[in-house]
Amino acid sequence: MTATADAGQVNSGRARARRAGAGRAKAGRVDTGRVDAGRVDADGFRRALAVHAAGVVIVTAQSGGIPVGLTATSFSSVSLEPPLVSFYVDRSSTTWPSLRAAGHFAVNVLACDQADLAARFARKDVDRFAEPTRWRPGPLGAPLLQDVSAHLVCLPYETADVGDHILVVGLVAEARVHGPGRPLLYHQGRFGRFIAHP
């Protein structure tokens, strides 16, 4: 009798957990009856995103003996254990195939006076590593840009297709801070500086 009651309680508990899990799964999904997903005004969406200030990094690598790099404003920390960081790259990027083929990459965190460098690595049809860009090979060969606030050398960890971008996650193998300089920010289509409250 006791065993039957215990089994019943266990089965009842499992059923409740399944119902609760199903409820949570439904709550996490977009109710397309209430929100017309994908029909947001494109200009309004861009304007809303533009008011969010973002830090600026340049992701660099060496692929086939050739240095490659791009500017990213989507850099983020992901995990402390293991140490993971991420950034997004447009699927149409001509630099991404070379970055993807590299055995590792470096994230160069830009200082507030490096707007010209950020703009250079965002341009097409230019030798991004030619003068006035100053850099040196890192411990694993990825280019490390001079005068940046910090750099992180990363091993490829995971990638995922997300909309029209690719999420790139890196496992940090080395992290160095070069100075307490203020960061370069990107806001409403322009680069700027961070000013701390007194």
Rank of each mutant, 00 (worst) to 15 (best):
V107F: 11
D164Q: 07
L171P: 09
P180H: 02
I66E: 15
A142V: 03
V78Y: 07
D41P: 04
G192N: 14
P156Y: 02
K124I: 12
T73Q: 11
Y186G: 09
V35M: 04
A115K: 02
V162T: 08
S98F: 11
A61F: 08
R47D: 15
P143V: 03
R182Q: 15
A102F: 05
V89L: 06
H151W: 07
V177D: 12
L145M: 04
K124S: 15
P156H: 00
I66G: 09
G189Q: 14
E158A: 15
R193N: 13
D125Y: 05
R182N: 15
R18F: 13
D127C: 02
G64C: 06
A37D: 15
L184I: 04
P183Q: 08
S79N: 08
T94S: 15
S76N: 10
G44H: 01
G64D: 06
T133S: 09
V148N: 03
D90N: 15
L117R: 08
H197W: 09
N11I: 10
L155H: 04
R18K: 11
L184K: 07
R39Q: 15
P82F: 04
T4R: 13
G23Y: 05
L167N: 05
A5Y: 06
K26T: 09
R136S: 14
R14P: 14
E81M: 02
D125G: 15
I66D: 14
R128N: 11
G170W: 01
L110S: 02
A61N: 03
G69E: 10
L144S: 09
R136E: 15
G141F: 02
V168T: 00
V172M: 00
P83M: 01
R24Y: 02
N108C: 02
V169W: 02
V169G: 00
T60V: 00
A101S: 12
D161I: 11
G55A: 04
A101R: 08
K26L: 06
K26E: 12
A22L: 12
F75D: 13
S74T: 07
G189H: 08
Q62F: 08
V169Y: 02
A72F: 00
G8M: 05
L84K: 07
A27C: 05
K26M: 03
S92K: 06
T32I: 04
F105G: 13
A54I: 08
D36R: 09
R128I: 13
F105L: 10
S76E: 10
P97Q: 00
R176V: 03
L49V: 01
I58P: 09
T94D: 04
F75H: 06
G33A: 14
R120S: 07
A160Y: 09
F75M: 13
M1V: 08
A5S: 08
S76C: 05
D164T: 05
E158C: 14
D113W: 05
V78D: 08
K26G: 03
R134Q: 13
F191K: 03
R176D: 14
P67A: 03
R134F: 13
H197K: 07
Y186P: 11
S86V: 07
G64V: 06
S149D: 10
P183F: 06
A150H: 11
R123M: 07
D36Y: 05
L49P: 13
L49S: 03
F129P: 10
Y157C: 05
L152K: 13
A3N: 10
V78G: 11
P180T: 04
A37G: 08
G23W: 06
V107N: 04
T2A: 11
R47N: 12
L144P: 14
E131H: 15
